[in-house]
């Protein structure tokens, strides 16, 4: 597992790349920009990536992070990849529900289920 700028950690499984956000709170533009650069650098190197974003450490985020996820999602799908989110804290899941981003993102309980979802597709 490699650490990048210590804002994300990246792990590779057989069928997926798992990026975990390592900060407990993601608020400021500078944090969001750093995350975007870090995640995009991984996505750019892997066309057709199966990407799982793991929120296990994140307890609080602002709407700027939701925008970041939209941007990452677009980039992943432009590269013919697929994106899953997982381990979202209940308070933050409520934010996804309020903004109806639960209709935009595929969200799973944990990394294993998120990773398995790629191979269950035809």
């Amino acid at each position: 597992m490699a650490a990048i700028q210590p804002r994300i950690s990246v792990a590779y499984t057989n069928d997926a790349t798992v990026i975990a956000f390592t900060d407990e709170r993601i608020l400021e533009d500078i944090d969001v920009r750093a995350l975007r650069e870090a995640v995009e650098s991984v996505v750019e190197q892997a066309p057709r990536i199966h990407l799982v974003l793991d929120f296990r450490h994140v307890k609080f985020l602002s709407s700027a992070v939701l925008g970041l996820l939209i941007r990452i999602s677009k980039r992943v799908y432009e590269q013919e990849g697929e994106l899953r989110l997982c381990n979202i804290h209940p308070g933050i899941y409520e934010v996804f529900k309020i903004t109806r981003l639960t209709n935009v993102f595929e969200i799973y309980e944990d990394v294993e289920r998120a990773t398995r979802s790629f191979s269950s597709r035809p």
Binding site: S63, G67, I70, R71, V95, I98, T99, L101, V104
Partner: peptide, 12 residues
């Protein structure tokens, strides 16, 4: 709007 990166602050 659902796919726009901005504009969710006031709703929240």
């Amino acid at each position: 709007n659902l796919y726009r990166p901005e504009g969710r602050g006031l709703l929240l």
